[in-house]
Amino acid sequence: MNNIDLKDRVAVITGGAQGIGLAVAKRMIAGGAKVSIWDMDEAVGKKAAGELGCDFRLVDQRDLSAVEKVTRDTEEALGGIDVLIACAGIAGANAPVRDYDPQEWLRVMDINLNGVFYLNRTIVSGMIERGYGRIVNVASIAGKEGNPNACAYSTSKAGVIALTKSLGKETAGSNISVNCVTPAAARTRIFDQMTQEHIDYMLSKIPRGRFLEVDEAAAMIVWLASEDNSFTTGGVFDLSGGRATY
């Protein structure tokens, strides 16, 4: 594993207790960052933070006031937040559009899109004041292509891509980089939310013929979150194993 220099940088990783987020947390700590894992699963979050020796904060990103409070609390404990990795999200139900439950649609949007907006909106304010910041939003290849029977997930991730592009342009003159990654499926707990038919479909679309490894995702994300990434902003970085069409 190649270490990226993140010495004394304060990094918040939502969904950092498992999957891609956990892999990112490990790499960032190895690079010298002060990491705070934010998660709504208290037991899993505390366990991960205890094993890594990092900070943990319980937060539901659907609640703007909770996001604002945990931001203040984290900055009081660790210092100004230099890095945000917005990784937390859900898959939602698998069903065709005509049968999709409107309440499930709203639930997916609330977590995957509204929550990421609240995180970006709140944390970028301090970055602008300090004149430095790195944000990486975790979108999905589904946000580019639209997966059948996953309309809510696909739409929410397309929204994350557009949010990233807008904020990247707004903050380009402030030494802040805002980018997103578009992973193909990785074998994490999110698979528990999907039908086997949908999992098989996703694998069939990946030219490399396998799922993404979480460490592969972390390698790209951590570089994007580093000072070395001093020029690219508003970008969408492919992690789709060759599936991406643009």
Rank of each mutant, 00 (worst) to 15 (best):
M1N: 09
I4P: 05
D8G: 03
V10I: 14
A11S: 09
V12T: 09
I13M: 10
G15I: 06
G16D: 10
A17R: 05
G21R: 06
V24R: 01
A25T: 07
K26S: 11
M28G: 08
I29W: 05
A30H: 01
G32V: 09
G32Q: 07
D39N: 15
D41A: 12
V44G: 04
G45T: 11
K46Y: 04
A48G: 11
G50Q: 09
E51L: 14
G53M: 09
C54D: 10
C54G: 09
C54N: 11
F56Q: 07
R57F: 03
R57V: 11
V59T: 08
Q61Y: 02
D63T: 02
V67G: 05
K69V: 00
V70G: 00
V70T: 09
T71K: 13
R72K: 10
R72Q: 07
T74S: 15
L78A: 02
L78I: 03
L84C: 06
A86Y: 11
G89V: 02
I90N: 02
A95W: 01
P96C: 05
V97S: 09
R98F: 13
V108A: 01
D110Y: 00
L113G: 04
N114I: 08
V116H: 02
V116C: 01
F117C: 04
F117V: 14
Y118A: 03
L119K: 05
N120W: 00
S125L: 10
I128T: 10
R130T: 10
G133L: 03
I135G: 00
G143F: 00
K144C: 06
K144A: 13
K144F: 07
E145C: 04
N147R: 06
P148Q: 06
N149R: 10
A152P: 04
S156F: 02
K157D: 06
G159D: 10
A172W: 08
G173H: 08
S174E: 13
C180Q: 08
C180T: 09
P183H: 12
A186L: 12
R187C: 06
T188E: 08
F191P: 02
Q193G: 05
T195H: 07
E197F: 13
I199C: 10
D200V: 07
M202L: 14
F211Y: 14
E213G: 10
D215Y: 00
A219S: 15
D228E: 15
D228G: 14
N229P: 09
N229E: 13
G235L: 03
D238N: 15
L239W: 02
S240F: 03
G242I: 00
T245H: 07
Y246M: 07
